[in-house]
Every structure is written in structure tokens, then in C-alpha cells.
């Protein structure tokens, strides 16, 4: 089969091509086209119900587009099987609503999944990869604690550890710092900076906190069912944001320089 020559650059990690999706009659995501390149840190922003979470679900194949298509690492999501290349951190795991009986180490080890394995039930101990991930998210000392006993910020770090254990090239996160205190937030972005510097991880982050993402991300996608704008963070204007949120927004960017 000849390789189709499209205008996707080979280093594109996620590509949306005219993607439309809706739960009922109304479209949650409408005709979205853009691509996220290797090493980018893209923040998805927009008001509530603007389709941000739906868009990342489409990116991971958790929802199927009604029209258009999604490519992951250049491959159509329908045929995509290289799940180890992706790490996903949801806002919270459904297990956090119950007293899930697992330790921090158990959860991080879940990230090592490689298919049906009859020895999984007998496996004890912590692999070097899991140890590294636990150290990375600074949860090594708490590795034997039950996750239900942790704070929101700590649980979030465990989920990131779980996502990082197989060293993904693409990390997709849905509002990872909501409900996390200031110190926890600071720690989170320090970790993301570290991951980007050391591992060149591509990051897609859904966020409500425009102030923070403006000086952490390098690209901003403004969603309001449609993609309103997709620009470098420096090029984003007050006008873009005001149009997105329907009222005047002043950008106050505190840069660290």
C-alpha cells in the first residue's frame, strides 16, 4: 500500500482532521482541525462545556468521531495499538470514589500493563521502572500507603507516576491540578518542566487556570465547541480570550525570567 502523503509532518503526535462529535443532537466538538507536534506543551482552554475533555477523549480513542479522523503518531486511532506511547492522567480516577484497596506502589505498577499475563496475580515487589516512577513523582516514601488515605494532590501524583512508568512520549492530562493546593500546583508544574527537559515529553493539558498555563505551556488551543484559536502562547491576545469567554479578560502574565 502506498504511503499516503498528507500535510501531516512526521513528528506530529496528535492530529485532528475535521473532527466532529456530539452526545445528542448538539455537537460537543465541531469541525476541529489542528495538530500537536512532538515536544509541544499544549494547553486546552475554554469555558465549561466547550468540549475540552471530549476533545482529549477523542484523541485517545475513548470516543469515536462522528466525522473526521484522529491520528496518533501518524496512525489512524482506529488502528492504533501502541498504547505504551501514551500516558493519561484523568481529573480523578473512578476508584477515588470508593475506598479502593491498593497501595501507592500497586497503582503505579498498574502502568506496567503489557497484556494478559497469568503471573500478574502473583507478582510482588517493585520493578526498577516502578521505583523510578515513584521517585520521579516523589511518592517513594509513601509507597506502602493506601491511596484512599492520600490528599488530592498526592493522589494526582500517583496517577502521574502510573502514567510515567512506561515512559510515554505523549502525556495527556485533564485538569490535573483542580482541587490541589498552591504548593501542590507548584510541585506539579515543576515535575512537568522536569519531564519536558529530561524526556522531551509532549504534553496536552486541559485547564481552567489560564493564568498558570500562560506561562507554563508553549501553545494554547482555545475551544468553544469549535477551535477558536491555536497559537503560540506569546501570540495569544486579550481579544482571543475575551471572545472565548464572552466577557473582557485581561491577561496578566507573570513570567519567571
Amino acid at each position: 500500500m502506498p504511503i499516503s502523503i498528507t500535510n501531516n509532518l512526521p513528528e506530529s503526535h496528535v492530529t485532528f482532521e475535521h473532527v466532529t462529535f456530539g452526545y445528542n443532537e448538539a455537537h460537543a466538538v465541531e469541525d476541529v482541525t489542528f495538530s500537536i507536534e512532538r515536544g509541544n506543551f499544549v494547553a486546552l482552554i475554554g469555558p465549561n462545556g466547550s468540549g475540552k475533555t471530549t476533545l482529549i477523549k477523542l484523541a485517545m480513542g475513548l470516543e469515536k468521531p462522528q466525522s473526521g479522523r484522529v491520528l496518533l503518531f501518524g496512525e489512524d486511532i482506529k488502528r492504533f495499538r501502541s498504547w505504551h506511547r501514551i500516558g493519561y492522567v484523568p481529573q480523578f480516577a473512578s476508584a477515588f470514589r470508593v475506598r479502593f484497596p491498593a497501595t501507592v506502589a500497586d497503582i503505579v505498577k498498574l502502568g506496567e500493563y503489557k497484556g494478559i499475563d497469568h503471573t500478574a496475580i502473583f507478582r510482588r515487589g517493585i520493578s526498577p521502572a516502578a521505583e523510578k516512577a515513584l521517585l520521579l513523582v516523589d511518592m517513594w516514601d509513601l509507597r506502602h500507603r493506601l491511596i484512599s488515605e492520600l490528599s488530592g494532590g498526592q493522589q494526582q501524583r500517583v496517577l502521574i507516576g502510573r502514567a510515567m512508568v512506561h515512559q510515554p512520549e505523549l502525556l495527556i492530562m485533564d485538569e490535573p491540578t483542580s482541587g490541589v493546593d498552591q504548593a501542590g500546583q507548584e510541585q506539579f508544574y515543576t515535575l512537568i518542566r522536569h519531564l519536558r527537559e529530561t524526556r522531551k515529553v509532549t504534553v496536552i493539558l486541559v485547564s481552567h487556570d489560564i493564568g498558570v498555563v500562560l506561562h507554563e505551556a508553549d501553545k494554547i488551543a482555545c475551544m468553544n465547541c469549535r477551535l477558536q484559536s491555536y497559537t503560540d502562547v506569546n501570540e495569544l491576545s486579550d481579544k482571543d480570550l475575551s471572545a472565548l469567554y464572552g466577557h473582557k479578560v485581561d491577561m496578566v502574565v507573570h513570567r519567571h525570567e
Binding site: K57, M60, G61, L62, R81, W83, H84, I86, Y88, P90, A93, S94, A95, F100, A102, I107, L110, G111, Y113, G115, I116, D117, H118, A120, I121, L159, R162, I172
Partner: peptide, 20 residues
């Protein structure tokens, strides 16, 4: 046989799906 799959999908079905 399906211990890992059962635990993964109980912990969080979406996260489990993205793990394959």
C-alpha cells in the same frame, strides 16, 4: 488469568482503555 485486566478496569475504565 484476567487479574490485571479486572483490577485495571475497576480502578478506572478510561485509564484502563488507554493502557490497552
Amino acid at each position: 488469568l484476567l487479574y490485571s485486566e479486572l483490577v485495571q478496569s475497576t480502578f478506572d475504565p478510561d485509564m484502563a482503555r488507554v493502557s490497552g
